[in-house]
Simulated scan of single mutants.
Amino acid sequence: MKKLIIATRGSKLALWQSEFVKAELEKAHPGLEVELSVMMTKGDKILDVALAKIGGKGLFTKELEEAMLRGEAHIAVHSLKDVPMAFPEGLKLGVITKREDVRDAMLSEKYASLEALPLGAVVGTTSLRRRMQLLKLRPDFVIKNLRGNVNTRIRKLKEGEFDAIILASAGINRLGLSAEVNYFTPISKEVMIPASGQAALGIEIVCDAEVERLVSVLNDEDAIIETRVERDFVTILEGGCQVPIGVNAELCGDALHVKAILGLPDGSEMLSEAITTTRAEYASVGKALAQKVIDRGAKALLERAEQIALNEIF
């Protein structure tokens, strides 16, 4: 194969991610030409409605997948946290890259931390997972939806629509935007458990042995293990973007630490679990942890959470 085509969204972060993969592939395979095919997804077009109400994560991948299935592209580069658990026939998850900082972060023009925010502070996020954990910490917060690409969200903060906004640290770091605001403060995982797959890139590929061989050089073993645990947990719970689920697996040498949280979007009811095991046991850990919360009533709680997300204003 002499030419590989990447289907990508047109946001600055999506383009950074695709350009990064392009450069890495061209470096690993001298003589290989890598081209970007930029397209707009439904998730990029509908910016005034919460994701939970219009279909969740697949809104950012469907058009890219359709282009791949038509033979117009070979791979698509996604933030792994935005990648659905199931794939259309003919496509699969081919690569999981080394993770950036997995933490969420608070951005603000006036306040240095969540604790420093005033009573009734307006905080921007569209993530039900973040909403739940913010309101658990500070029930006084007023949570407002925040859609658009990273630069748009920062602009809205700077224009005074919010006292603070919550974004993934990884995206800010990749785009070098931390200096765009007065305060960029990563949030401890003890306070806010990240999303499944956060800070890793997931490369979706057509089911083709040569394409898989070319991109496999970008796989990271630790990221594959950690995100497998996280995605198994979410898959067993049948949880998508419409429900608040946080899960993070972290390898420390041979030890594997996993924390998870789920509940209602307003933070009024939650279940949390943690488990420590070994690297060798990773293939069963996500499922085992999911079963623990299922035994405590997780399925019914998530059904209620989904109804709230679909029927209430957010």
Rank of each mutant, 00 (worst) to 15 (best):
G240I: 03
V77Y: 08
G263T: 01
G43T: 05
A290S: 06
D295E: 15
K292G: 09
S284I: 08
K98T: 09
G263K: 00
G31M: 14
E221S: 11
I75D: 09
Q17M: 15
P88F: 13
G43E: 06
G31L: 15
I245V: 15
V123R: 00
P139A: 05
T61N: 12
A170L: 08
G10L: 07
A50Q: 03
A200K: 13
L117P: 02
M106H: 02
L289I: 06
A14E: 14
I143A: 00
M68S: 10
I166H: 01
P194N: 07
T41H: 09
I245T: 04
L134H: 00
S113H: 06
S169E: 09
T126W: 01
G31C: 15
L13E: 15
P139G: 05
Q242E: 13
G176V: 10
L301T: 04
S18V: 13
E72F: 10
N149Q: 12
A170N: 13
I166E: 00
D232H: 12
K156Q: 12
D44I: 09
N248S: 13
E212G: 14
A170I: 07
H29S: 13
A112H: 06
N145T: 05
L135K: 00
V191Q: 05
D104E: 08
N248L: 07
T278Y: 11
M270Q: 03
K3F: 12
H74N: 14
P118C: 02
R131C: 01
M192R: 01
E63M: 12
D254Y: 04
G176T: 13
A199P: 06
I46Y: 07
R129F: 00
L107I: 06
H257W: 07
V191N: 02
V150T: 15
I275Q: 12
D101N: 13
E312F: 04
G197H: 03
L271S: 11
D104R: 03
A105R: 00
V142M: 01
R296F: 01
L80A: 05
A283I: 15
A283M: 14
E72D: 14
L93I: 09
I154V: 08
I5D: 14
V123N: 00
E212C: 14
K22M: 13
G148E: 04
N145P: 08
L51F: 05
G240R: 01
L256Q: 09
L167A: 01
E63I: 12
L157F: 05
D82N: 10
S11L: 11
S127D: 04
L157M: 03
L175Q: 14
A290Y: 00
A199D: 09
K3P: 14
H29A: 11
R213W: 12
I205C: 15
K81L: 02
F20H: 15
R153M: 01
P118F: 00
A209Y: 14
E230V: 13
I193T: 08
Y183P: 01
E24F: 08
Y282M: 10
A121G: 00
I236V: 12
M1P: 11
G263A: 05
L214N: 07
G10V: 10
V234G: 07
E109Q: 07
I54E: 04
A300N: 13
K12G: 05
V258S: 05
L91Y: 07
